[in-house]
Simulated scan of single mutants.
Amino acid sequence: MQKFTMKLWSAAGAAAAATTLAATPAMADGPAPTVADPTEYVYPAGFDKALSLMLAGEGGENGTGVQKVWPTLSVPALTTVQIQKAVTGNSLVIPYHYTHQYSADGKVGGYNIRYDKIDISKCPKKEIPGDGLLLYAGVCQAQVNEPVTGTWKAEDNKLCVDIGWAGKTQVTGCYNVFFVMDSVAMVKPDGSVSGKAHALKKGAAPDM
């Protein structure tokens, strides 16, 4: 039985994680190809062009960050320099959860989104984007933006952060960073993906 896998590669070519995606009819197994630096051929137009397409909201045009190979999808981790280019002055966002803004001086700002239950009569029957109210499963909630503070640095091909809100540290540690189409994956040292996929937004992302 053939297995399709998605492998997250570090810049040195080591596997950071492997996840089984699907199974199809049998095919002879063979050794996975190895390269000195996967980033040399997954950004055919150059990393700067790939980054500009992502920030422009092009939806991962031409498979941003993805190696052209079948049946294994290999995604290399960003290097220290690429991480700096990607996040400096921009924001990593999980919609409806938080926005982290990375300044050039190594500080992190932005906000975490908390939802507080309020009287259901205050919620419109039809969703109004941007009104700060969420009606879900018969419960009305108001969006509260909690200020985020912290620091960041890029070193050893990882993004290292110390970020907190609501009076305590919430996100800390060093992560490998991957561009997968139009999303950003942050991977823990044990190879597991941290939380949900992030969006990379140009500048200080607006409130949601």
Rank of each mutant, 00 (worst) to 15 (best):
A154H: 08
V75S: 02
Y136D: 08
Y115W: 13
G106C: 13
I94E: 07
L134H: 12
D190M: 00
L53G: 13
M27N: 09
G150A: 04
I83R: 14
C174P: 02
C140T: 14
R114T: 04
T79D: 15
G195V: 00
T39M: 03
I128L: 08
A137V: 04
L73F: 09
K117M: 01
I120P: 03
N157V: 07
L133V: 14
V87C: 07
P129H: 09
W165Y: 14
G167F: 12
G106N: 02
Y115S: 05
T79Y: 15
V66G: 05
K168G: 06
L78C: 06
P44A: 07
S52I: 01
K201E: 00
N157H: 13
T39R: 12
V93R: 06
G150S: 03
P44Y: 10
A199L: 07
T64G: 07
S192L: 00
V42S: 04
K158E: 06
D131R: 15
I128E: 05
L133Y: 11
F179K: 04
A11I: 01
K85W: 02
Q101A: 13
P31G: 11
A16W: 00
M1V: 08
V161W: 04
A45Q: 06
T34N: 07
E61W: 10
A185F: 01
Y115L: 06
E155C: 12
H97D: 09
H198T: 03
K122I: 02
D105V: 10
K196H: 01
A197Q: 06
Q101H: 13
L21E: 03
D131N: 15
L8A: 06
L200G: 08
L134P: 02
G138F: 11
A32C: 01
T39V: 10
I163L: 10
T151G: 00
E58A: 15
K201G: 00
G57N: 08
M186F: 03
V108K: 03
M186D: 00
P31A: 15
Y41S: 05
D190S: 00
M186I: 02
D116V: 13
Q2E: 03
I163R: 08
L92Y: 09
V161N: 08
T72K: 15
M54T: 10
T34M: 10
V180Q: 02
P206D: 05
K202R: 15
S121M: 05
A15K: 10
A17D: 00
K126F: 01
T5F: 09
K49L: 02
N112P: 02
Y136M: 12
C174R: 11
T34C: 07
Q84I: 12
A204I: 12
G203P: 05
P206H: 04
C174H: 03
G173A: 09
L51T: 06
Y136R: 12
T72W: 09
W165G: 06
D190T: 00
A32W: 07
L73K: 12
N145Q: 11
G59R: 07
C174K: 13
